[in-house]
Write a protein that binds this DNA or RNA. Sequence first.
DNA 1: CGACAATTTGACTCAAGTCAACTAGGGTGG
DNA 2: CCACCCTAGTTGACTTGAGTCAAATTGTCG
Lengths: 226, 226
Amino acid sequence: MSSICLPLAISDEEVDRIDRIVERGRPLRRGDHVFRAGEAFESLYAVRSGAVKTYTLTEEGEEQIMGFHLPGELFGMGGLSAGRHPNSAAALETSAICEIPFARMEPLSRDIPGLQRHLFQLMSREITEDQQLMILLSKKSAEERIASLLLGLSSRFKQRRLSPRTFRLPMSRGDIGNYLGLVVETVSRVFTRMQRSGVLEVAGKDVTILEPERLAEMAGTRLEER
Amino acid sequence: MSSICLPLAISDEEVDRIDRIVERGRPLRRGDHVFRAGEAFESLYAVRSGAVKTYTLTEEGEEQIMGFHLPGELFGMGGLSAGRHPNSAAALETSAICEIPFARMEPLSRDIPGLQRHLFQLMSREITEDQQLMILLSKKSAEERIASLLLGLSSRFKQRRLSPRTFRLPMSRGDIGNYLGLVVETVSRVFTRMQRSGVLEVAGKDVTILEPERLAEMAGTRLEER
DNA sequence: CGACAATTTGACTCAAGTCAACTAGGGTGG
DNA sequence: CCACCCTAGTTGACTTGAGTCAAATTGTCG
């Protein structure tokens, strides 16, 4: 099971060792927090089922969502360097989370060379994703932002062997807007527009991508560039 | 001298050891690259004089500036985890850069406990800054963005014991716009507007902050929020 | 079955982008 | 040393994508 949490090419015996330090259970309900900004960093977390958002608060107390985390994905490593979590993490729907105490992981990572590298890669991937998001926020239109988000989700579902064509959005329109720097109304309008143009089939949180190629086109270059 | 590059509470002897591995010289001219995206990560860099921008290219080949680096600041640690630089770094004006070969630094960091922590803190600060930028990009108006940038620069100049009130912008209007997700014309207009309202004195790249309090106000909450 | 929250839709506004023309600097070669 | 050229910056007129406000509709959970 923890092979889902930490997909990595290691021996059964090693899986076992990791398995023993992973703490299970902890079923969370929509809105429950996994951790809050400022708390000491003690564990990494993996989504077993459900979905999680990580966010910070602006000086004015508004929420800014930094990322969504789907089953099989790790989160909470933002605090690794600083020793405390720079942002909060809350469940988007009923979720099962596994906790991986970091202190017990460090000795392991000495014995399993792949593990250390794997963690570094995860951190670096997070930085890359942040940068992608910055580009999205600074240069893309509402349509491009939403197309990118949908394609990203689609490919992540595919990785987890779920349908990349049809899936249920775990987050609200408000969350999508917050994440992408748009207001709810705009998110809603773009969804209906995409539906009308036949690219998507949308029914509440259930989305079907009818024309992936066209969606990809929409996510990319928009006329003439800037 | 390297105490400027790595400001850190360590003994003279230790400064000496670090000093010996820092490579000097390398005067760069406007537009010259320190490193390019994709190159192997081998060193950290510090700005001795001048200024540097780090940027990535979007899929469409446009530049997206990720940060500006002033004298005394380290840059290029984005590649630390991945092993290769995720973005490029170019001089904004004639600059002197010191290079700190990372391989020679690692043994040192075992002996100097503060050093390792210092590096982690730097990485974590970079992540925090990226997140601040994301909030800026997703929630703030043109005026707020520029006010924030100016205040940020001001406080960084102050840290380096330069005037926080009067300074020369090392980057072009175009670079500012690119960084903040605005077009040049907007940047230019906001500058003139701030000048007319008496908050700033602007003459080309020379800026004087006349009313810091008002600028800070502009950087913060803008009517009613979102 | 309500009651409240989330979503959608329409009408209107406005901040920032686009296009275009003009001006000011900065650096180079004669 | 200065004329010229090229790039950077400014300004104005106009357009537009996304935000705001408001109202209707749907969904959801206790």
